[in-house]
């Protein structure tokens, strides 16, 4: 589903990603962990070309990302959820969800509205359709953001630290939605600091440090029996 080969990314002199090779299968849930500044968010953002790789190849569902035209084609199939939600503040919750299906997929408005309502019910916010983002709590906003991404019926969902900006009591409601998505067989790539969640939901855990994948394996392998010194060191601080 996602193939990444020899991916490098630099911002000026800062070499953030130093040669990443990664292959993600359909329905796989991959969790990326690692210290701040290790490049894990940059890696995620390269998958839908929000960051343009300096070197290397990224392909999603067989489409190699290299021109403006196919970037938009790929983005239609790749949903993204941001740390800070990035809902559109001048639109209602319903309008937030309907916008892309109507403008990008050319879905008819009635159809988009019923889809939006179905998705809202699914994330437990059926009663918030007419609210504006600022009237919702952080956890609710993030669930709307997930519904907004799902409205494009993506084949892959990317999550960039989806719970890092939330108050602790709201983390659970967002993780629950993500768990149910994983159960339904969505292909997911998740950058997170929630180790319990990573262990429970991930098919594969990647430990990234200093722009490289240091270690990967099943959650049991990485969390219970880390092989690398840096992984052990990191886990000892966060677990």
């Amino acid at each position: 589903m996602i193939d990444i080969e020899n991916l490098h990314k630099s911002f000026g002199d800062a070499h953030i990603l130093k040669g990443i090779d990664l292959h993600i299968k359909e329905k796989e849930v991959v969790v990326i962990i690692g210290p701040s500044g290790s490049g894990k968010s940059t890696l995620l953002r390269c998958i839908n070309y929000l960051e343009q790789p300096t070197e290397g190849m990224v392909s999603v569902d067989g489409i190699v990302l290299n021109s403006e035209a196919n970037i938009n084609d790929v983005r239609k199939e790749v949903g993204m959820v941001f740390q800070r939600f990035n809902l559109f503040p001048h639109m209602t919750v319903l309008e937030n969800i309907m916008l892309a299906p109507v403008k990008v997929r050319h879905m008819d408005k009635g159809e988009a509205e019923s889809l939006a309502k179905t998705l809202l019910a699914r994330v437990g916010l059926a009663d918030k359709a007419e609210s504006y983002p600022e009237q919702l709590s952080g956890g609710q906003q993030q669930r709307v953001a997930i519904a907004r991404a799902l409205a494009m019926k993506p084949k892959v969902m990317l999550f960039d630290e989806p719970t890092s900006a939330l108050d602790p009591e709201m983390v659970g409601e967002v993780l629950d939605v993500m768990k149910s998505l994983a159960k339904e067989g969505m292909t997911m790539v998740i950058v997170t600091h929630e180790m319990g969640f990573a262990r429970e939901v991930g098919d594969r855990v990647l430990f990234v440090d200093d722009g490289r994948i240091i270690e990967q394996g099943t959650p049991a392998e990485v969390f219970e029996h880390p092989q690398e010194e840096r992984t052990k060191n990191f886990l000892s601080k966060v677990l």
Partner: peptide, 18 residues
């Protein structure tokens, strides 16, 4: 306007103009 707004729009497959 926060750069995240443009990123959110683009990540949904909308063009820069849209």
């Amino acid at each position: 306007i926060d750069a995240g707004q443009m990123e959110a729009g683009r990540s949904l497959g909308m063009t820069w103009g849209q």
